[in-house]
Design a protein around this nucleic acid. Structure first.
Lengths: 206, 206
DNA sequence: GTCTATAGCCTGATAGAC
DNA sequence: GTCTATCAGGCTATAGAC
């Protein structure tokens, strides 16, 4: 009854520790910069032991990216076509900014992958990502057509939300160098709120 | 008269070819992902011949980054305190966007370095970059105080200009995946122009 | 100045004892 | 399941001929 292939508690724990350590290392050093030894050390395992759980370095990386995409798209997926346009979009912006604060390693892992030409998730970008953006861009275009938000290019609006919010994770080192003692996240929420409020609010008719 | 250490025409040409090739390779694969062999092949030289011109792989990378920082800061440096605020800032935005279009490799080289914690240019960020941003942020704060542009956090404004414009270089693959056949740069200038115009224009007084 | 050949190191992955 | 020991390949850099 206990000799089957059911995953042990230890197995689950070690797999999780490996993925956690790998996220640390891959996001900070990129795929090529990372070493299996480094990941194993960070996970508290020996190198061969790590390779008992994952067949290769690439398999660890793939497992991370596969789990990441859904997490990354969730906030956009949550954009409600039947909600108030300005509220929905601002809520999306704030969720994304919160993710940059809480999950900067995930953001950097993603940025590393895109920056180097998306060799491992290019297909997902053209498939899953494009489909979702198409769907939500149509919603935004509808809001524009109804005059409920100011006129703008829906897909570039989405790009601007991605770039502004993820910048606070991906370029954190630079932001801190410029700001000195001030934490970048102290004023970021108010700033992006102001920016998108002014961008999206249609001019008062009269 | 020709036995001195004066650099030959061939020397200058080969050095330039190496830096050009290195920019290709480093920006696409990161420092660790790049190989000296790959750079040498792209430059049309043998590996030992390349190492005759630069003592090490790191020396090539350093030479690239050193030449890059001034180029990268030039548009912000050109912001004229005595010009029209909205015009000056929009001109800055468009210069940066133009650089993303014309020099995407430089943008990606920089992004790779920042993303991985700026191990090689951290000092320049806290020195040269911070000093320039401090200076220009004071100019922007003055414009805000005079009511010539809408109130906002000057340094976060600068962050937003960086992130929005550089996004078109660094995340180009993703943008193209989402847009399909449409070139990202077709509508980018109009979009960022609209965005910053709405952000910066003070509400009409009445 | 440019090449071939190679030294020496690092790294991903495996063998095999326990 | 976990370890020590090690292989095999790829990499940076150098030696030495031309």
């Amino acid at each position: 009854m206990d000799t089957g292939p059911a995953p042990t508690r230890i197995q689950a724990r070690n797999r999780a520790a490996i993925l956690e350590a790998a996220l640390d290392v891959f996001s900070a050093q990129g795929f090529r910069g990372a070493t299996v030894d480094g990941i194993a050390a960070a996970a508290g395992l020996s190198k061969p032991n790590l390779l008992y759980y994952f067949p290769s370095k690439e398999a660890i990386h793939d497992a991370l990216l596969a789990g990441l995409l859904d997490l990354w798209l969730a906030p956009l997926r949550a954009l409600d076509p039947h909600g108030d346009p300005l509220e929905e979009l601002l809520a999306y912006v704030h969720r994304k900014l919160e993710m940059s604060r809480e999950l900067p390693r995930e953001s950097r892992l993603f940025a590393n992958e895109i920056l180097q030409g998306a060799p491992r998730i290019g297909q997902a970008l053209e498939g899953e990502l494009k489909a979702l953006v198409d769907e939500k861009a149509a919603v935004i275009a509808g809001w524009v057509a109804q005059g409920r938000i100011a006129p703008l290019h829906p897909r570039h609006l989405i790009f601007s939300i991605w770039s502004l919010t993820q910048h606070y994770a991906d370029f954190d080192v630079q932001n801190r160098a410029v700001l000195g003692d001030e934490d970048p996240f102290t004023h970021a929420p108010a700033f992006v709120d102001t920016l998108f409020r002014r961008l999206l609010t249609p001019p008062a008719t009269g």
